[in-house]
Computed example of a mutant assay.
Amino acid sequence: MAERLGVLDLTYAALAHPTRREILRRLQHERLRVTELAGEFPMALATVSKHIQVLERAGLVRRDVHGRDHYLTVDPEHLSEAERWISDYTGFWERSADALVRHLKESSDRSDR
């Protein structure tokens, strides 16, 4: 369980920044060189590289080096872990909301009598 939380912490921390979410979106359908990707952002290459490093530490992006070119691809495995975690809690909150609706309806029905 502790290992899973570590992965979740890194995943959600990486996803917390809009630039990193945009990097993942742009890598969703194609593999890109770091320099290609960085050219699409209004910030220095070093800044984009730091965002990429956060994504790599979280296991969301994989880097393949071919000579001087560094290619990035999305690695969706840890996103699946985050999705499972959300799904587990979604069921809980849906059941809680349903119970609240039933309670409010029953309270309303009793007060109408």
Score class of each variant (00 low, 15 high):
residue 2 A to K: 12
residue 3 E to V: 13
residue 3 E to A: 14
residue 5 L to R: 11
residue 5 L to E: 15
residue 5 L to W: 14
residue 6 G to W: 11
residue 8 L to Q: 02
residue 9 D to C: 06
residue 10 L to R: 10
residue 10 L to A: 14
residue 10 L to M: 12
residue 11 T to E: 06
residue 13 A to N: 13
residue 13 A to G: 08
residue 15 L to H: 03
residue 15 L to I: 02
residue 16 A to E: 06
residue 18 P to E: 07
residue 22 E to Y: 00
residue 22 E to I: 02
residue 22 E to M: 04
residue 23 I to W: 04
residue 23 I to G: 00
residue 24 L to Y: 06
residue 25 R to I: 03
residue 26 R to L: 04
residue 28 Q to C: 01
residue 29 H to E: 09
residue 31 R to V: 10
residue 31 R to N: 09
residue 32 L to G: 01
residue 33 R to F: 08
residue 34 V to Y: 01
residue 34 V to M: 02
residue 35 T to F: 07
residue 36 E to P: 00
residue 37 L to E: 02
residue 39 G to S: 05
residue 40 E to S: 11
residue 40 E to M: 08
residue 40 E to T: 04
residue 40 E to G: 10
residue 41 F to D: 01
residue 42 P to S: 01
residue 42 P to R: 00
residue 44 A to I: 00
residue 48 V to I: 09
residue 49 S to V: 01
residue 50 K to C: 02
residue 50 K to N: 11
residue 51 H to I: 00
residue 52 I to V: 07
residue 52 I to M: 01
residue 52 I to N: 01
residue 52 I to K: 03
residue 52 I to L: 04
residue 53 Q to M: 05
residue 54 V to G: 00
residue 55 L to P: 03
residue 56 E to M: 07
residue 56 E to Y: 02
residue 61 V to W: 05
residue 61 V to A: 03
residue 62 R to Y: 04
residue 62 R to S: 11
residue 63 R to I: 14
residue 65 V to C: 07
residue 65 V to G: 10
residue 66 H to F: 14
residue 66 H to V: 13
residue 68 R to P: 11
residue 70 H to P: 01
residue 71 Y to D: 03
residue 73 T to L: 08
residue 74 V to P: 00
residue 74 V to D: 01
residue 75 D to E: 15
residue 75 D to Y: 14
residue 75 D to S: 15
residue 78 H to W: 04
residue 80 S to M: 14
residue 80 S to P: 02
residue 80 S to I: 09
residue 81 E to H: 15
residue 82 A to E: 07
residue 83 E to T: 10
residue 84 R to T: 13
residue 85 W to P: 09
residue 87 S to G: 12
residue 88 D to I: 08
residue 88 D to Q: 13
residue 89 Y to G: 07
residue 90 T to S: 13
residue 90 T to Q: 15
residue 91 G to N: 03
residue 92 F to N: 13
residue 92 F to S: 12
residue 93 W to Y: 15
residue 93 W to N: 12
residue 94 E to P: 05
residue 94 E to Y: 08
residue 95 R to I: 05
residue 98 D to A: 15
residue 99 A to I: 05
residue 101 V to K: 15
residue 105 K to T: 15
residue 105 K to N: 14
residue 107 S to D: 15
residue 107 S to N: 15
residue 108 S to K: 12
residue 108 S to W: 13
residue 110 R to W: 12
residue 111 S to M: 13
residue 113 R to G: 15
residue 113 R to E: 13
